[in-house]
């Protein structure tokens, strides 16, 4: 079971941070954060960028931990597979949460 978890951990945390960022974005829009200025941007932008950064750091941490002697998997295959999915988690965080840096806050569509 630990080996299965090792393989699933990074993408699971991606899913958690992805959903959390989406939720944070919803709450921020509901509470009007884009209108409160902070450090040259808005509270909204700062909060979401922070969330993104934290998510990236978590993924990097998993990669480092999986490389460490203490937490590496016993078999070569599980070690390889867990590193592969850890990279998936990192790329997924970078790829799917990047809109927090570039897209207008809370604009409707159409």
């Amino acid at each position: 079971m630990k080996d299965v978890l090792r393989i699933l951990l990074a993408p699971l945390l991606w899913l958690a941070s992805f959903s959390a960022t989406y939720g944070l974005h919803g709450i921020g829009c509901a509470l009007g954060w884009p209108e409160i200025a902070l450090w040259g941007a808005s509270v909204f932008r700062v909060a979401l960028l922070t969330a993104w950064l934290v998510a990236i750091l978590i993924q990097v941490a998993i990669l480092i931990v999986l490389h460490s002697d203490r937490f590496r998997a016993a078999s070569a295959f599980t070690q390889w597979a867990s590193l592969a999915t850890a990279w998936v988690g990192l790329v997924a965080v970078l790829w799917t949460v990047y809109p927090v840096a570039v897209i207008t806050a809370c604009g409707g569509n159409g």
């Binding site: 884009p34 200025a37 941007a41 897209i103 207008t104 604009g107 159409g110």
Partner: peptide, 22 residues
């Protein structure tokens, strides 16, 4: 796709964030 979508947006997003690409 995202920038194309951004261009099509109505003028929402008031305050500090207003008017980026819209």
């Amino acid at each position: 796709g995202l920038f194309a979508g951004q261009r099509l947006m109505p003028g929402a997003g008031a305050g500090v964030e207003a008017g980026v690409g819209t």
